[in-house]
Design a protein around this nucleic acid. Structure first.
Lengths: 125, 125
DNA sequence: GTAGTGTACTATCCGTTATAGTACACTTGA
DNA sequence: TCAAGTGTACTATAACGGATAGTACACTAC
């Protein structure tokens, strides 16, 4: 369910946050679904429970999940809408890179093509 | 000439590298132009000279500038072409974000629109 | 010769990340 | 009731990267 890259610069707890958000955004995790427990996931990924606790706390702070002590941790009803709002920021990042590429003299065609490939509308020629 | 963000997670030396590359890519820095000296820039930005030295060494390693000890540091003839190759990687980043947005269910129109805005083809509606 | 340039090196401080270990409260279900 | 599994809280520590401080030396231009 989760893939951890131990060599990149992105901290593990942040990778967990990102990936959970994507699972929600893509509908794989829905309202009411239970997230893996800190202990179980800690074994599966060979990661310290505290690290996962940190990630889950942040997800909870963002309103994507709630904890039921003694029971588990579950995706909230608002989760899907909330991560949807988050994608606006990602779009801004994309725009920023596009501006840079424009400034660097890259033709717009190539950028549009890349987007089409990402959306499966064109093949990567 | 340079803008440092001391609060973000991107290290200062990396910001210097990025910004120098952009200045070259956009043609503001041309072949033969002298880069600010480590000492001068260190005062202007209130940054340790060693940090700037680190950035400049990396730029040199990438072939974007050469040092003339006792004289200064200058943009190479290949610099423009080399940063042009670097933009391919940036395009890959953009594509990756586009894939995420696709997975998150954002309509492709919005992404294409963002690119058009970045290229000045459309206004930010 | 002086001023300004690049270069090299050591040492230190600090924040973030991740880990280890422990303890406690809660809920579920046999 | 009690055991197992859940979340939570806390302290302590190690490791790493980034940035700084300070010093010293070699080179070039004027």
């Amino acid at each position: 369910m989760f893939q951890i890259d131990r060599f990149g610069r992105t901290p593990i707890y942040e990778q967990i946050i990102d990936q959970t958000q994507r699972l929600i955004a893509s509908g794989i995790l829905k309202e009411g679904d239970q997230l893996p427990s800190v202990r179980a996931l800690s074994q599966e990924l060979s990661v310290n429970p505290n690290t996962l606790q940190k990630a889950y706390s942040e997800l909870e702070r963002r309103g994507l999940c709630v904890s039921a002590p003694g029971n588990g941790r579950f995706v909230t009803a608002d989760a899907f809408r909330l991560v949807g709002e988050g994608t606006k920021e990602r779009l801004e990042e994309l725009k920023k890179i596009a501006e840079e590429l424009c400034a660097a003299g890259m033709p717009e065609d190539q950028v549009l093509h890349a987007v089409n490939v990402a959306y499966g509308k064109e093949t990567d020629a």
